[in-house]
């Protein structure tokens, strides 16, 4: 269980994390989303006691990270892919971590095998690719068999197999009761991995809800309705306060209304309906909408047009 209480962090005069309050529950994968610079990594570093909060608190199982008795046995985290000393061998890096937290040394071989580095344990970390380093970081996180996992952008540098692997790993850990807190800017990745979403922008909480609810509440959900008398329906819908546009095929596209609203209104007017479809926003769209107002760098109109 991870709890943030009004967590705030200033760097110089700039506020990176702004009164963030959250409870991240066990048994779920909680996705942590936000545009670059939103404060995701800073929040995770505060959680691990790497940075000190300006005010507020970040607690794991009720205490700050530094108060955990053997932290690696409670929390497994990877917030920096620059893992280990380049001149050190992967297995000895893990062995040092194991010894530091009274973790049986036999776990070293076990986690190396678990992350697919069984044959690379004797290699120096400096020779590792980014993907291998990422796997080594995850091996370090799993070493103490912790009940809380914190990963910052874990899929960076992983190949397609690796992405599937880490997704399965996180799902399996959550199913076994672990608290899994994972940041990403890849919305599609979260859609298939996370149960719950925390979205932040400019250090502030924007959304804290299940994936389904985040999508359901998106203003980008729309309804397409095709009727022979589109003009009459459009007028009625507009009068009722919904936003209506005409598609190229002559159908109407309505936002802000439910299927029942549109169907009922057509029925009331005695109109024949040829098509009535709900278009759910993708998580990507819902997210873009949520965060567009909090972007640090908003593209100008000309940049938008160019892309």
């Amino acid at each position: 269980m991870i709890v943030l209480e009004e967590l705030t962090k200033d760097f110089g005069g700039k506020r990176a994390v702004d009164k963030l309050s959250l409870a991240i529950e066990p048994g779920k994968v909680t996705g942590f989303l936000g545009p670059n610079g939103a404060g995701k990594t800073t929040t995770m570093r505060l959680l691990l006691g790497l940075d000190a909060p300006t005010s507020g608190a970040a607690l794991i199982d009720g205490v700050p990270y530094a108060r955990l008795h053997t932290p690696l046995r409670t929390v497994g985290a990877m917030v920096d892919s620059r893992i280990g000393h380049p001149g050190q061998r992967a297995a000895s890096h893990l062995l040092g971590l194991a010894r530091s937290n009274s973790i049986p040394a036999c776990r070293v071989g076990a986690v190396l095998a678990e992350v697919g580095l069984a044959d690379a344990g004797h290699k120096r970390i400096g020779t590792f690719s980014l993907g291998m380093r990422q796997r080594l970081g995850i091996a370090g996180a799993l070493l103490g068999d912790p009940q809380v996992l914190i990963f910052d952008e874990p899929v960076n540098g992983l190949d397609a197999d690796g992405v599937v692997w880490i997704r399965r790993l996180m799902r399996a850990k959550a199913a076994a009761g672990a608290t899994v807190f994972v940041s990403s800017h890849l919305m599609s990745e979260m859609q298939s991995t996370a149960d719950h979403l925390v979205v932040i922008g400019r250090g502030r909480l924007i959304a804290d809800d299940t994936i389904d609810n985040v999508i359901a509440e998106s203003a980008l959900n729309s309804i397409t309705v095709a009727t022979p008398d589109a003009a009459a329906l459009a007028e009625a819908l507009s009068r009722a306060g919904y936003s209506v546009t005409r598609t190229d095929s002559g159908a109407l596209r309505i936002t802000g209304a439910s299927l029942e609203d549109v169907g009922g209104m057509a029925h009331g007017l005695g109109l024949r309906i040829n098509e009535l479809t709900l278009h759910k926003a993708s998580l990507e769209q819902a997210y873009t909408e949520l965060t567009s107002s909090s972007l640090d760098y908003v593209p100008t109109e000309s940049e938008r047009a160019a892309s």
Binding site: L50, Y65, L68, D80, R82, I83, H85, P86, G96
Partner: peptide, 15 residues
């Protein structure tokens, strides 16, 4: 440790 970034991992082990 600072140069290689492994200070992050070290301080996670010994906060």
């Amino acid at each position: 440790e600072y140069g290689s970034g492994t200070i992050t991992t070290s301080l996670q082990a010994i906060p």
